[in-house]
Every structure is written in structure tokens, then in C-alpha cells.
């Protein structure tokens, strides 16, 4: 099916699923426009009782032609302070996007994994060295403060 119709059908299905059952991690999720089904955008919120609480981040999602055999390309558009996210480019370091991808992940579940990553950073393979260093040295209070600062400063305001 995926082979014949391309990802379009599945993406529509996913979109419907999301609309039926919204996601607590996401404020919104959908294609950028009706013509462009291969480029989605999402707004993620920070988890309650975490350093990211109250944050809002816009994410760009680029879907490859061979989706779902290949993972979507997800980047933070709003700067986020996290050991595994590049502050400038928004690139996310998560093995789900590389080796661990399987076609049964949807855009929504993938974003859930990113949401999970927010609270379970892996400072040993950092893309943001500053915050990773705080984690590595065990300065959790410092890390928390820094994250809260950035979360406050760069909250996505809906443009």
C-alpha cells in the first residue's frame, strides 16, 4: 500500500487519528498547508512539573518520500535548551531518527518520543555542550535554572 500510493494515504490517516485523539504533548499538529502534505508543523508544550513547564516550541517536520520506511525529519524551530538538541539549528539527536526507526511509529508517536526526550536528556551524546556539561557535572539546579530561563525567553508566541 505504502509502495503504491506513497505516504499520502497514511499521512491522511495519521492526521485523522490525531484529530480524533489529540495529544497531550502537542498544542497543534498538521501539514503546513493543504497543498503540502509532506511538510508538517507542530507546536509542543513543556511537560508539567518539569523544567520545561510552560514552554511552547514550534517544530518543523519534513516527511521523506519513502515514509514510513524512513523516519520524518523533525527540527525545533523555536530555540530550546536541551543537551540533545542543537540550539541554533534545532536538530534533534535521537536514535529513533536513525537506527531505531520502524514504520509503525507515526508522526505523533515520534513527537511523543521527542517530548520524552525533553525530560530524559542524554548528556553523553550532546548537541548542546553547555547544558550537557551542567548535567554531566551533576549541577541539576543550574541546569534547571538555565532551561527555565530559555524556556521563558524563547517561548513560541504563535508568530
Amino acid at each position: 500500500m505504502a509502495g503504491r500510493h506513497g505516504p499520502t494515504k497514511r499521512l491522511i490517516q495519521e492526521l485523522q487519528d490525531y484529530q480524533h485523539e489529540p495529544n497531550e504533548a502537542l498544542v497543534e499538529l498538521g501539514p503546513v498547508s493543504d497543498d503540502e502534505l509532506m511538510r508538517w508543523t507542530a507546536v509542543m508544550r513543556g511537560g508539567k512539573d518539569t523544567s520545561y513547564e510552560g514552554g511552547l516550541w514550534k517544530l518543523d517536520i519534513n516527511i521523506p518520500d519513502n515514509y514510513p520506511h524512513a523516519p520524518p525529519e523533525i527540527k525545533f524551530r523555536t530555540p530550546i535548551c536541551h543537551p540533545n538538541v542543537n540550539f541554533k539549528t534545532g536538530e534533534i539527536c535521537l536514535d529513533l531518527f536513525k537506527s531505531s526507526w520502524t514504520p509503525m511509529y507515526t508522526i505523533a508517536t515520534t513527537l511523543n518520543s521527542v517530548y520524552m526526550l525533553l525530560t530524559t536528556p542524554e548528556p553523553d551524546s550532546p548537541l548542546n555542550v553547555d547544558i550537557a556539561q551542567l548535567y554531566r557535572q551533576g549541577d541539576l539546579v543550574g541546569a534547571d535554572a538555565l532551561i527555565r530561563y530559555y524556556t521563558e525567553t524563547y517561548r513560541w508566541d504563535g508568530r
Binding site: 495529544n23 497531550e24 504533548a25 511537560g47 508539567k48 512539573d49 518539569t50 523544567s51 509503525m104 511509529y105 507515526t106 508517536t109 511523543n112 518520543s113 517530548y115 520524552m116 525533553l118 525530560t119 530524559t120 536528556p121 541539576l140 534547571d144
Partner: peptide
Amino acid sequence: PVPSSIRLFRAPRLAAGRRISS
């Protein structure tokens, strides 16, 4: 057959508690 949202959401909170605690 799809990742359970319940399961996926439980983990971060647990972990978060762990991280920030002294």
C-alpha cells in the same frame, strides 16, 4: 500494536522527578 500513549507519558514524569531531585 502502536505505542501506548499512557506508557509514553508516564516515563518522562518519573524521570523528571529523578533528574531534578538531589
